[in-house]
Nucleic acid binder design. Structure first.
Lengths: 346, 346
DNA sequence: CAAGCGGTGGCAACCGATTGCCAGACGGCC
DNA sequence: GGCCGTCTGGCAATCGGTTGCCACCGCTTG
């Protein structure tokens, strides 16, 4: 990363040093007041005299005091914060989910924070561990964790899954089987006799599901399915995927998601193939950009905003009482037909 | 929001509700042992007899006990967490920043969380307040807060600004003056004698800066600048903006950002205007999608990933010592010329 | 039979804050 | 001067768990 010389080095700082951290007590002593006064200075400033407050703040600053959240939420109840973990925050397919979750969280008086685990199960687990103390509950979207580990986490934290089903854990999913059926029927009715599927990450539960559903529906409609991949679910991953599909003389491509599909479109254009005349392309998610790439992409749209909404509701329900309401919610997708899919070449 | 009937209602829950959760005490009582035994059952299983342990686990299970992570880590110091606040998480122009910040945070052993304030100063302030307790420091990107409030916050928290300059507060900015100069020179050299600027949000510091720089450079090069707006910095906002620009018989449009520019491109196409033959369009940020919209967008690209990297480094420096290293970092942008800008119509 | 010993589980003191309640100070008013 | 109300800050309880220390138990050993 070509950084200019003016960029400071990351200080190699062990933030769990043995040095005992500064507590309200320390500040109180330094300022010559009681611990409760220090506490109030931060949480309820108008409750303490301005002169005292300034004095306390000065002492706190001098000592480098910072309140310890964990203990804070020990005495008050909860932090009023929920965390939404996503594999890739820059993947527009999560935007709807994020927005829906945010709205609902905010409506209930909670703050939603997001964390990114870059498709890495390890990072995902680490985030849960790190944030566990700071938030009241988790939303895990497209988790890359194995079932066993999810159950394990479920013992220690409140959380809800999105795009993933695990027995006994509340979650919201989109009906991929049905959506895939819509895609395959669409292509079949356009005369395509074979479909090339470009697979997503191996650890993705959804990726596996989509392929299984596609294979099944295709066979039922006498269309022959082929699977290529896995490919990284990104625009960049599309180039190699497109080349592989061309090598197979594919007439219809179904990409694991829209990012990959857009990457494929670009590569096909580079290689001089016309879409949809020579080849049809369909994606999943209906992301930002799917309607203004060229040609606009046929893709499976899911009510992701509703999913976010529902997932937060579920989570809040968990937090509130132990009444086990409806635990698994299934939402229905629908195919948005645009210009990237057309009749099979003759 | 058309939610299916299977979606649970948001529990109207005051998250300080009376719903006391199950504690070790409860479990202990149910199992007929002491609280400490319950605690040990979970944290140090081999320390308790197997029969007792099973007994306790059964009781815990029956009551639905889940250990409270917050109090558990009451003794841990610092949260090892940084928060990055952005006005709109779905705006791809922040992706580079997010990625850069994440990398650097992770390299230093910190977890980065993101929060969205939807262009709202109130929400931004509220987030700072709510999260203030849960994180070790803040990165404020494109803050919508007035200078005074930023200074105020700076007294209570460690933080770094991005895309914003406030005296005495560390920050990372892109040189908008220089970037704008590049845009204007580009258009001027293509023969454009007037430039229509589509303004961004009024509360945006950057929006104001960009306009000022554009106005200044334009006059210097004898190009006449016009300003329209403000418009919401989104694709949807582009339609009205485009219509207004057409009304002005503009030949060159500079949009506050790429989202707006893409919206403008779409509207121009709808209205039958050819880009760049009839009209040129330039944006800012070089976001995801700017290279595959049609036509591909000429836009000002900034080293946003470096910005994220630098901002986190700055923040970590703040956390570590009070040694005031370099506090303000300026990064240089460069114009990425694509197909949306061309010679002025004759 | 007494001393020794490992294995269990309880008591109570924390962890680092928050908060209800109360007492002293201060000023205004009759 | 006495009474009263408002501010302000301290005491101590509390949040939910963890953990050091000790008592007790049943058994082996000398």
């Amino acid at each position: 990363m070509g950084l200019g010389p003016e960029t400071p080095q990351a200080p190699a700082l062990p933030h769990h040093g043995p040095a005992r951290s500064v507590t309200v007590q320390d500040v109180a002593q330094a300022a010559g007041v009681a611990a409760s006064t220090v506490s109030r200075t931060f949480t309820n400033p108008q409750r303490v005299n301005e002169r005292t407050r300034e004095h306390v703040l000065a002492a706190a600053d001098r000592l480098g005091y910072r309140p310890n959240t964990a203990s804070r939420s020990a005495s008050s109840r909860g932090t009023g914060t929920l965390a939404l973990l996503v594999p890739d925050i820059t993947n527009p397919s999560f935007f709807g989910l994020i927005r829906g979750a945010e709205r609902q969280a905010s409506a209930a008086g909670f703050t939603l924070v997001l964390a990114n685990f870059e498709e890495s199960p390890d990072l995902e687990a680490q985030h849960v561990k790190r944030l566990g103390a700071a938030v009241d509950g988790f939303l895990l979207a497209s988790s890359r964790l194995p079932d066993a580990q999810i159950r394990e986490i479920s013992a220690g934290h409140h959380f809800t899954l999105v795009n993933r089903e695990v027995e006994g854990v509340p979650g919201v999913v989109v009906d991929n089987e049905d959506g895939t059926r819509q895609i395959v029927e669409h292509l079949a009715s356009l005369g395509h006799r074979s479909i090339t599927y470009l697979a997503g990450p191996r650890s993705s539960w959804m990726a596996a599901h989509r392929w299984r559903a596609l294979e099944e529906t295709a066979r039922r409609l006498s269309v022959s399915p082929t699977r290529l991949g896995p490919y990284p679910p990104s625009v960049a991953g599309g180039a190699a995927a497109a080349d592989a599909a061309i090598g197979q003389q594919a007439t219809a491509i179904v990409a694991f998601n829209d990012l990959l599909a857009i990457g494929v479109l670009r590569r096909l254009a580079e290689r001089g193939l016309a879409v949809p005349r020579d080849i049809s392309v369909v994606g999943y998610d209906d992301i930002f950009g799917a309607d203004f790439c060229s040609p606009p992409l046929t893709t499976l749209a899911a009510p992701t905003q509703d999913a976010g909404h529902a997932a937060v509701s579920l989570l809040l329900g968990l937090l509130d009482t132990r009444a086990p309401g409806p635990r698994q919610i299934v939402l229905m997708p629908h195919l948005r037909i645009r210009a990237s899919s057309g009749p099979a070449p003759t």
